[in-house]
């Protein structure tokens, strides 16, 4: 078992190294640098440009910059985000928890709702409940989430004013509110972006969970459970679900990268100041250290989350399968 952990760790490190290198190389191939917009005007003397570029190492050959960047990275230094006038670590330190909050809440809600939907569908297999929920979850996958976000923002936010349309906190003297009011305010702002993301997660989870449950429902031990005189709900929840949930958790791990990607769009639409919005701003400003850090950290997040879901899936896998 410890050996397995070591392999997984090495694996995760390899992933991050590959991603870091490829993003660095690709950005090197791209035109422009963070100072292009600010300094490359005709009225800026060449000496000033050279001075600023030298201060941040942009005058060095790409190979050496990569070595420096990688060396700094191993020390935990991510560089300086010129567009924010702060270190990358500070920017990311602010943004990352917000993204974690958004993705975590969406994942938790979506997973629970998705499993619940699948349970109802299995209980009423081939009846109207199954069909209606099946159509809804199909829609939840087929309709792009940025559009759901837009609709939610326009109607629930702007039209009916039920929820705020942007940001993660009320303006003005909100900072002076008592703690529970600030938490309530945060939940209120979180509702739309997390809800939209959770909807997308729930639809995908429900579709896979339903298929897995229906496959398990054909097993002999389900018949045994029914022969005991158990009610259909007990049969599904106590006997089918524990045997059907493992693959869905593993699959969720595989789908996590695309969830993180989806969160980027959602953050942009709702102005949620997390990693996604940071990435967009950094891209516009060509702030390479920040772009690199954002992509790298999103990858790390996906890798970590996947390792965790893999471990959970392994743990809940049917013992029989593990034995064979």
């Amino acid at each position: 078992m410890p050996r397995e952990i070591v392999t997984r760790l090495l694996h995760a490190i390899a992933v991050c190294a590959v991603v870091a290198t490829s993003v660095f190389v690709l950005i090197q191939c791209a035109p422009g640098d963070p100072f292009a917009t600010a300094l490359d005007g005709a009225d800026v003397p060449p000496s000033v440009r050279a001075e600023w570029r030298a201060r941040y190492g942009f005058d060095l050959p790409p190979g050496e910059r990569f070595v420096r960047w990688a060396a700094a990275l191993t020390r935990g230094e991510l560089g300086y985000a010129a567009s924010r006038h702060r270190t990358v670590a500070e920017v990311v330190g602010d943004a990352m928890p917000r993204t974690l909050l958004l993705v975590g809440v969406a994942l938790g809600l979506g997973f629970a709702a998705g499993v619940g939907i699948a349970l109802v569908q299995t209980r009423h297999h081939r009846r109207w409940q199954d069909r209606v929920l099946g159509a809804l979850t199909l829609g939840g996958v087929a309709v792009p989430e940025f559009l759901v976000a837009l609709l939610a923002m326009t109607w629930l936010g702007a039209r009916w004013r039920l929820f705020p349309v942007a940001g993660m906190g009320s303006l003005g003297d909100a900072g002076a509110w008592p703690l529970w009011e600030r938490i309530l305010d945060l939940v209120w702002h979180l509702a739309l972006p997390a809800g939209v993301l959770a909807l997308a997660v729930a639809s995908r989870v429900a579709r896979h969970q339903r298929a897995a449950l229906l496959a398990v429902m054909r097993e002999d031990y389900i018949r045994t459970a029914r022969a005991k005189g158990l009610g259909e709900w007990d049969v599904i929840v106590r006997h089918a679900l524990p045997n059907a949930i493992g693959p869905v958790i593993a699959l969720l791990g595989l789908a996590l990268p695309s969830l993180v990607g989806g969160a980027v769009l959602i953050e942009r639409i709702f102005g949620w100041p997390g990693m996604g919005l940071t990435l967009f701003d950094a891209l516009l400003a060509r702030d390479y250290p920040l772009i690199l850090a954002a992509v790298l950290l999103a990858t790390v997040l996906a890798v970590v989350a996947r390792t965790v879901t893999d471990a959970i899936a392994e743990y809940v896998a049917p013992r029989r399968a593990r034995e064979r």
Partner: peptide
């Protein structure tokens, strides 16, 4: 195994924007 952990949309956005 390595590449499947990359957030696809994110990487594509980063590349396109770059």
């Amino acid at each position: 195994d390595v590449l499947i952990a990359m957030p696809r949309l994110l990487v594509v956005i980063a590349l396109v924007a770059t």
